[in-house]
Design a protein around this nucleic acid. Sequence first.
DNA 1: GCCAACGTTGGC
DNA 2: GCCAACGTTGGC
Length: 156
Amino acid sequence: MAYWLLKSEPDVFGYPDLERVQKEPWNGVRNYQARNHLRSMQEGDLAFFYHSNSNPSGIAGICKIARSAYPDNLQFDPESKYFDPKSTSENPRWSMVDVVPVRALPLLSLETLRSLPELSDMLLLRKGNRLSVMPVTEAEWKAILDHVDSISAPAT
DNA sequence: GCCAACGTTGGC
DNA sequence: GCCAACGTTGGC
């Protein structure tokens, strides 16, 4: 099983929205690197749900990949801003996965994440990173959840 | 709203 | 295949 991180702007679609709808097709990804990560996902993989362009930005929850990659419907919709006239149904250019909520987390801000030494090499925290879908290592995943445990149940 | 850091496009 | 111009992302 692999771990991932998905970015979304909470003004558009935040973690609470995922809890409300219970299942969401992760469409609209139009970057090849991000798409390739989507295509690498397997059902059952877990992902951090990251709020970008927010105040503060950070990890807001955990979601699960409920369906592995299949063609993104919006690429064929001329009315959509994600329409891609160069994509064909025989050879769809863009993919999406379905995600379902797992649990909300107390918002882990970028500042908090940067303060954890275990995350010093995390892709998300690297300068200039703009990827909206990226892998998370098992060590990073555990370090973040350990931190969540430490703030929700302080050591006695 | 600014702007740095990318990614994409298209002329050549 | 280079690279300038342009568009987008996302923190601040």
